[in-house]
């Protein structure tokens, strides 16, 4: 009898702990989402550095404009190349939709104690199928985010902060999948490189770093 009570107590304690942890993870993400929603709109100057195997481009200056919920615009005088996912804050769609959050573990990232939380969207309409978010619980900031999408593979964003209003990031570093491709040369008449193909391993990583300055918020 005593043994059964101990087992039952153990089971109840286990599930209560797990359920509490889940609720906590969801609560934390929702709290973070609410903080992000305080920003109705902003504009900022950006400095973009692109590091992709087959792309040669110097760093570029541009201006970004954001308006709630997901309007994002970049104005650049020259040509600017950005990864299709990650820089336009498309992860906000995930926070604004219904999701399940699971606490995974705690981890030190960029010298900060973070909680790694897995977020799974409930609907199937979003392009994001899974996200891992490293949250600095103390400052309520995302330190890192890894996102898996249906259409564009996965990408990882590392955020760094200074004293910007509403804790908007001072810089982000987006690491994303790039499908290796053979660039056409026919239009340019570059016969020398007609037979050149980029590494055929399938997918490589590209990195885009963006520094934000001169935020004007709301």
């Amino acid at each position: 009898m005593m043994r059964s009570i101990i087992v039952l107590f153990g089971i109840v304690t286990f599930f209560t702990t797990v359920l509490n942890a889940q609720r906590d993870a969801e609560g934390l993400v929702k709290e973070l989402s609410l903080k992000m929603q305080l920003v109705d709109k902003y504009s900022a100057d950006i400095l973009v550095k692109i590091d992709v195997e087959f792309v040669n481009i110097e760093e570029r200056k541009a201006k970004v404009f954001f308006e709630k919920p997901d309007k994002f615009e970049i104005k650049s005088t020259g040509i600017l190349l950005l990864p299709k996912k990650g820089v336009e804050m498309d992860y906000l769609q995930l926070f604004n939709a219904e999701f399940t959050a699971i606490d995974e573990k705690t981890e030190i990232v960029s010298g900060k104690q973070t909680r790694l939380i897995k977020i799974i969207p409930m609907g199937s309409e979003l392009d994001i199928v899974l996200a891992q978010v490293w949250i600095d619980e103390l400052n309520l900031r995302i330190v890192r985010m890894k996102t898996y999408t249906k259409s564009s593979g996965s990408y990882r964003i590392d955020f760094s902060y200074k004293n910007n209003p509403f804790d908007l990031p001072a810089a982000i570093r987006v690491e994303f999948d790039v499908k290796n491709m053979s660039l056409p040369s026919t239009l340019t008449g570059d016969l020398e490189s007609l037979s050149k193909k980029l590494d055929s391993k399938g997918v490589t990583k590209g990195v885009v770093s963006i520094e934000y300055s001169n935020y004007v918020v709301n």
């Binding site: 040669n56 660039l183 570059d190 050149k196």
Partner: peptide, 8 residues
């Protein structure tokens, strides 16, 4: 320019 690589 597309010249084996993308040059901007």
């Amino acid at each position: 320019i597309l010249k084996g690589t993308l040059n901007i």
